[in-house]
Structure formats: C-alpha cells, structure tokens
C-alpha cells in the first residue's frame, strides 16, 4: 500500500514535470550529446579492470560553491556558503550537499530576513566515466530539504483602515523538494576540478507553522515558484584511492 502510494506520487510528479516544463527537451538533447561523446571515448579506451572491482569507490571529491561567497561579498542582501562531497561507485556518484543562506531585504515599508540551512542527497550518472583526465559530465537527481526561520516587520496601507503595522515570525519551517541536475567538472591542475551544476528544482512541499507566508527558502529560492532554476559553480579537490581505468598506450 505504501509502495503503491509512493509510486503513484512519483508518477504524478514525473507527469507534471513532463507536461509543464520545456527544459526536458533541452535535457534530452544534452544527454544525447554527452552520450555520443561518451560512446566515442569508450570506443577508443579498453577496460582492463574486472567489473566486480568497478563498484569499489576509487575517489572522493570535496568542494565548495564559489557563488555563495561571491554573493556574500558583492551583495548586502544575500550571503551563504555550500559544501559538496561525492563518492564514485562505478560510473555513478553519490552526492551530498550542505549549505546555509541568509537573506535580508530592508526597504521603506518592511524588513524581511530568512535564515536557514539546506541539504541535498542524490546520485549522478557520469556520462564520460573513462575520460583520461577524470573529468565529469553528469546528470542526476537530488532529494533536498531546508530548515529555516523567517521574520518580517512592516506596514501595509489600506484605503479603508489606514496603516497596519505588523511583525511576523516563522520559527521553524521545513521545506522539501526534488532536483534534476546536469553539470560538469573539468580538471584544471593536479587533483583540482572546477565546474558547474545546473539545477531544476520542483515539487516543493512546505510544513511547519507559517505565521508569515514563506517567501525565500535557502537552497531553493522563491517559495511562490513551483519550479525554480539554480546554478552552482564548484571548486573541488579529488582524493584518489586508486586508478579506475587503465588508459592504453598509443601505438
């Protein structure tokens, strides 16, 4: 019964995504392009490792998002940070993100703050697992969550009732959503990688007492949007346990 409900909800969510978003076509084109690239690479590099050993992780990547600190420096309204850790299993990656965001909008008629942490857990499929430099081109899924507090003080004018002053606080709001991601990492020096992750965030669910209508969710974006785009630009360091694939010598 529980499984049926889960699969029913999953089916509904996928149907909603397919029906309501134009990005799917772009995603399919992107997958087709990198799959083509992957096929070419695989065709010229032989695999000398038994498949049973492929599932043993060969590396751990740890990085941080550079856009969060950039916002902190250039914007008075927004600050944040985000870390990313990933572990490979064959051509798949188990990925975990953890971060925090703070928003502070101060205007003549109101003062709004949103402060919270967020996390994401999911998996990526690396479309170029045998790249000789270890670069990645991937797509994947994330299950994400955020816990936040919000506060707004302000005033609203009504022609009948005059000016109303208010202070509202959301002490503990929880948000959950799903992300579909595409991205790449390129090796630039030794074990240093840089690259981006483009995110389509959807299926937002909110819970907790909301004295104030939730506006900005750390890690997600605007609560009023049923889908939201996001971009992260990571700088990561790879900790290699062993070589994954043997690159044949050119004759």
């Amino acid at each position: 019964m529980l499984n049926l409900t889960f699969y029913s909800k999953l089916k509904q969510t996928l149907r909603y995504i397919i029906d309501n978003t134009r990005w799917l076509k772009l995603l399919l084109i992107w997958i087709a392009l990198i799959a083509n690239h992957s096929g070419t690479t695989q065709a010229i590099i032989s695999d000398s490792i038994p498949k049973s050993k492929m599932i043993t992780p060969t590396m751990f990547m740890f990085g941080f998002d550079m856009l969060g600190p950039a916002y902190t420096v250039i914007s008075e309204q927004r600050s944040g940070w985000e870390l990313e850790a990933s572990l490979d299993v064959h051509k798949y990656f188990v990925v975990f993100n953890y971060g925090a965001e703070f928003f502070d909008f101060q205007k003549d008629t109101y003062d709004y703050t949103s402060d919270g942490i967020y996390w994401r857990i999911g998996a990526d499929i690396n479309m170029i697992p045998r790249d000789e430099f270890g670069s990645l081109m991937y797509f994947g899924l994330r299950y994400s969550g955020s816990t936040l507090t919000e506060k707004m003080t302000g005033k609203v004018f009504d022609k009948q009732w005059g000016t109303t002053y208010f202070t509202s606080l959301n002490g503990n709001v929880n948000a959950r959503w799903i992300e579909i991601v595409v991205g790449m990492r390129a090796k630039i020096w030794k074990e240093l990688f840089v690259g981006y992750t483009l995110r389509l965030k959807t299926s937002l669910r909110l819970s907790g007492d909301q004295e104030l209508e939730t506006y900005r969710i750390p890690g997600y974006g605007l609560a009023s949007e049923s889908t939201f785009w996001g971009l992260n630009y990571y700088i990561s360091w790879r900790f290699k346990f062993r070589e994954k694939y043997t690159v044949p010598q050119k004759e």
């Binding site: 309204q77 909008f105 205007k107 008629t109 109101y110 709004y112 707004m152 302000g154 005033k155 609203v156 109303t164 208010f166 509202s168 909301q210 004295e211 104030l212 209508e213 506006y215």
Partner: peptide
Amino acid sequence: VTPKLISVQCGPEFI
C-alpha cells in the same frame, strides 16, 4: 490574516 512579501520591490501585503 497572513502577511506576505509580494516581492522585494513591491513589499508586503496581507492574505
């Protein structure tokens, strides 16, 4: 009555 921020530019309203 629930306060809501319409947008950063527009400011708050009541729902």
